[in-house]
């Protein structure tokens, strides 16, 4: 390993001698190895992905800084609609940061600054005058750990629409005859059915959501996100805290959702990405998007040597 650390100190002679045996393996360019990760220059064509249909998101030259830390470097990618896009990569590679840029959740982190353009259906979401409420209604999000509100299951589901003013409930609405109790019931049943939770909780909608199991809570969070009728569902490692059975339920659910929704899912689990996604984007250390393409192609025959190393488990 001492040799390899020397090579990073731009010692040309040592570099050529030491990298000769792995040269020409994947991308046909001189390679160097640092701490198990191959060094190579990312090429633009690796992230070009041609697909039929419309792009839901078009991201162009996205840079994110946390203070002085350059967390995402010049990421450009188009995300097709009604499909599942997986974002994979080692810890700290910026995949969650990228996901949070898609509904501007990074605004909530004071140190974060975002540069570049992100377009949702052709409209830039970082332009002035953007309506964050409307954006987040269209782009729902599910977090890593289940985070239902400490309220009843029904209130959790109807929370978004009620706060948006789409549904009216409560004492005054009842008094004025404007109460949407029936709509609420419909919405709750529809969302929970979509999230494959209805049969398990239909008899206890008034129970506190914190009494559900972890997997149920996560599906409840998905149902809560679906209740606002979004176009896009962002999922940040939704199954990382769950057991295999709950995970497989979530995976089936993601698969079904992709018929009507655009799903962007961050995952640590490469098998999971391979199972559920239509296209995969690989972020590697340093906040770079290294490869983006059809899931099968990325996993079977990656163009980048680093991606191949990562996928075959050499690092990360």
């Amino acid at each position: 390993m001492t040799e390899t650390t020397q090579s990073t100190d731009t010692d040309q002679a040592a570099e050529s001698a030491q990298t000769s045996d792995i040269e020409m393996q994947g991308s046909g360019q001189p390679l160097e190895v640092t701490a198990g990760e191959t060094r190579e220059k990312t090429r633009d064509e690796w992230t070009d992905y041609e697909f039929e249909g419309d792009a839901k998101f078009a991201v162009e030259d996205l840079d994110v800084y946390y203070g002085d830390d350059h967390a995402l470097k010049g990421v450009s990618m188009d995300i097709p609609e009604n499909s599942v896009t997986a974002l994979i990569g080692p810890s700290g590679c910026g995949k969650s940061t990228f996901l949070r840029c898609l509904n501007r959740m990074n605004d909530r982190i004071k140190a974060a600054s975002v540069d570049g353009t992100v377009e949702l259906d052709g409209e830039g979401i970082y332009q002035d005058g953007i309506n964050l409420v409307e954006l987040r209604k269209r782009v729902g999000m599910v977090f890593q750990s289940p985070n239902p509100f400490p309220k009843s299951i029904r209130d959790n589901i109807s929370y978004g629409p009620r706060k948006h003013g789409d549904l009216e409930t409560g004492f005054l609405a009842n008094l004025l005859g404007r109460s949407d109790d029936e709509e609420v019931e419909e919405l709750v049943e529809r969302s929970l059915t979509q999230a494959a939770l209805w049969d398990e909780v239909k008899d206890r909608l008034d129970d506190n959501a914190l009494g559900l199991s972890g997997g149920q809570q996560q599906r409840l969070c998905i149902a809560r996100a679906l209740a606002t009728e979004p176009d896009v569902l962002l999922m940040d490692e939704p199954a990382s805290a769950l057991d295999p059975i709950a995970t497989s339920k979530i995976e089936d659910l993601v698969h079904e959702l992709s018929e009507h929704y655009t799903v962007v899912i961050v995952t640590h689990n490469m098998q999971q990405a391979a199972r559920i996604s239509d296209q995969t984007a690989v972020f590697l250390t340093g906040g770079e998007l290294v490869e983006y393409g059809d899931t099968e192609q990325v996993f079977e025959d990656p163009e980048s040597q680093r991606v191949e190393d990562y996928i075959s488990g050499k690092f990360g």
Binding site: R108, V133, R136, F143
Partner: peptide, 19 residues
């Protein structure tokens, strides 16, 4: 997490605080 979840649903800050 509660605040994040509420913000991700497009609920304004004051409504999040109140409810």
């Amino acid at each position: 997490e509660y605040r994040d979840a509420s913000a991700a649903l497009g609920v304004t800050k004051w409504q999040t605080i109140r409810s």
